[in-house]
Nucleic acid binder design. Structure first.
Length: 281
DNA sequence: CGCCAGGCTTCTA
DNA sequence: TAGAAGCATGGC
């Protein structure tokens, strides 16, 4: 557990003694596209059809808009609070490169998102940049999600079935629109059963998701890591490929394979910052 | 104007 | 079966 105490005050759940959680590292690192920074230490977002404002002061984390039940049933798992990141970081830090990556962004946690939402948002992510991905996801929710207090939910697969690419035009997803529609059709019809995918061995799960038009190995692995809690999946995007070539020419250490997805998130953040620093010179 | 963006599909040899 | 072109859109 990465928190010591939990209290409820009105509609706010307050965690104290919080460790290994940074809002910028976790909510603005390209794993979820549904969080907006609304103040220096405050983020607002919607997940699992619930609106939440997250505020942090030192080691105190406030979840505004959450009941104790919601915390126990949803947010605790969503923020991966039942995983010991202190222990994880200690293990990863035995590797010199990962030690630097972990030190650089020690507040990263890998969110456990809804599987359909993760699949869709990473379909939208291809050949795209993070600010624009956020825009596409926002417009998808505004146009096809349900309006709730504080914003819009992520649309269910069945809500998108029967639509045409023209219907999705307001989203401005470009060539990705037909991919979303194919995913929605396959998931809603049950030809791809998300809860069955959850039970499959990872290679079969990946192959199943890749039956969707527009889903290749990278998008499938992102869905598996961020939406199915498959922490052994290491989505190999251009940044991670670059990092692996640069730092691990002989291959990624096998002892970290079982948690490669978690390591990946630290590495992703780290190499991107290296690149930024080099560009500024 | 050109280049690029958490890739994938399609075409070509 | 590998390698390159094409893909919509928007920021720079």
């Amino acid at each position: 557990m990465d928190y010591k105490n939990i209290n409820v005050c009105g509609n706010t759940v307050i965690l104290t003694g919080v460790q290994n959680f940074g809002m910028d590292d976790t909510l603005d690192c390209g794993q979820s596209f549904r969080w907006e920074k609304i103040a220096d230490n405050k983020y607002e977002g919607i997940a699992f059809s619930r609106h939440l404002v997250v505020e942090m002061e030192k080691d105190k984390l406030m979840l505004h808009g959450s009941s104790l039940d919601d915390f126990n049933n949803i947010w605790c798992a969503y923020f991966d609070f039942d995983r010991d990141y202190g222990q994880l970081k200690k293990e990863l830090s035995k590797d010199p490169v990962l030690a630097k990556a972990v030190k650089f962004a020690g507040g990263i946690r890998v969110l456990r998102q809804d599987s359909w939402e993760a699949l869709c948002t990473f379909i939208l992510s291809q050949n795209n940049n993070i600010p624009r991905i956020k825009g596409l996801v926002k417009r998808l929710c505004e146009n096809f999600g349900e309006e709730i207090e504080g914003g819009f939910t992520f649309p269910e697969a069945k809500k998108l079935t029967g639509l045409t690419a023209e219907d999705l035009a307001p989203v401005r997803a470009g060539f990705r629109a037909k991919y979303i529609l194919d995913a929605a059709e396959k998931v809603a019809s049950g030809s791809i059963n998300m809860s069955a995918v959850c039970e499959l061995p990872v290679d079969e799960a990946r192959a199943e998701l890749m039956k969707i038009l527009g889903v290749g190995p990278k998008v499938a692995d992102c869905a598996l890591l961020f939406g199915f809690n498959r922490i052994e999946c290491m989505p190999a995007d251009v940044w991670i490929k670059r990092a692996l070539e640069m730092f691990y020419p002989c291959g990624f250490p096998t002892k970290y394979m079982p948690v490669a997805g978690l390591a990946q998130q630290y590495l992703y953040h780290y190499v991107r910052s290296c690149e930024d620093a080099m560009n500024r010179e």
